[in-house]
Design a protein around this nucleic acid. Structure first.
Lengths: 206, 206
DNA sequence: ACCTGAACACCGTTCAAGT
DNA sequence: ACCTGAACACCGTTCAAGT
């Protein structure tokens, strides 16, 4: 252990009451992140809004970043689960176009589902302590995509497929965030473009 | 004025000595940003490394963010200038492929030129006070791209062209940052992919 | 056993005093 | 006129004392 700071909750909650409080802290933090912004989000404010003292807050989370980390984890875990489900589909039997549709639709839903996604992504990018979470998740998505690619006809080396998967991931990430900030027709149009560009990327590496 | 915080240097430097010191602060900050990271970058450290007291630092910059803002401004200004130069080319006479090549090559050079580009982009994303800089710049690039598009055969409404330009900007931004983190063949491959995807995006909206 | 909040450490910023 | 750095405000974090 030594000087490495803990980023996980101090201890696993045993009682329902504790679990509720942790959940409450996460919800309050996610809400405040949207309301007061990232900079004015203080631990004392979070504690006050959650109806407890700072001390109690620190009883459940070892530091401020670990709260954001827990929110990020929930989101990334959901995403990981979704890619596993896609990977379990009978992809070899499908058209590439259909697979791309499923990928984009599912990913888009993952982004739209998370409240305050823009702030969360910003936090993951800005806070060094959250970088490892983001990186591990990226690698997980990339590994799964590298597994999907040969099933749609991209029979390259694993290294090459991982490389393609990274390009896929970064591109969709950027464009899905744009779509999250748009409404109605425009948002749908961006999804269409994303779909088409992914299709284009895959065709190029066939 | 009232309670709005100043983000520009306190006063325009009149003497060469002052200009040198401002330049020194910017260089030291850019270097430290890479060396100690974003979080451990304190004003006292910057002042010490620049061989002056905090007070003197604050004589030239009203606050910490304004230093990062000045670095960001320099980069964005360079970029703005580059897009103006491209816009001044006889684009109507060129093939779309050639135009895309020039765009990607030039943009890639803008990204590679900036020392610590990843930290800078992170700062622009994370610090709300720098958001307006980024937004104004985005709009400038988008306006110029919207002007270039009809010259390569994309004759849509201004709104539609701006929309295409945003997709172009976000996509290239994401992928050029990826390329900055890669080396040699891989980096070149990412540039190739970016080129191809932009080409694909433009063809789609022809 | 769990909670509180004053106290501590640290960093951004200021300003009275020095040259 | 310019510079210094102790002092102040504020926020993350801790821990002795309370229930």
């Amino acid at each position: 252990m030594e000087s490495t700071r803990r980023l996980t909750p101090r201890r696993d909650p045993q009682q329902q009451r504790s679990k509720d409080r942790i959940q409450l802290i996460l919800e309050v933090t996610a809400r405040l992140m949207d309301e007061v912004g990232f900079d004015d989000l203080t631990t004392i404010l979070i504690a006050k809004e959650a109806g407890m003292s700072v001390g109690t807050l620190y009883h459940y989370f070892p530091n401020k970043h670990s709260i954001l980390r827990a929110i990020a984890r929930n989101w990334l875990d959901h995403w990981d689960q979704v890619i596993l489900e896609i990977n379990a589909l009978p992809i070899e039997t499908m058209e590439m176009e259909e697979v791309v549709n499923i990928l984009i639709d599912t990913f888009a839903r993952v982004y739209q589902k998370q409240k305050g996604i823009l702030h969360l992504v910003r936090a993951m990018f800005a806070i060094p302590e959250l970088k490892d979470l983001d990186e591990r998740h990226d690698e997980f998505i990339i590994a799964n995509m590298a597994n999907i690619l040969p099933q749609i006809g991209i029979n390259k080396s694993l290294t090459d497929r991982k490389y393609i998967a990274r390009t896929y991931l970064e591109m969709t990430h950027a464009l899905l965030l744009v779509a999250c900030q748009q409404r109605g027709t425009r948002a749908r149009q961006t999804l269409e473009d994303t779909r088409e560009l992914v299709y284009c990327l895959f065709l190029r590496h066939l």
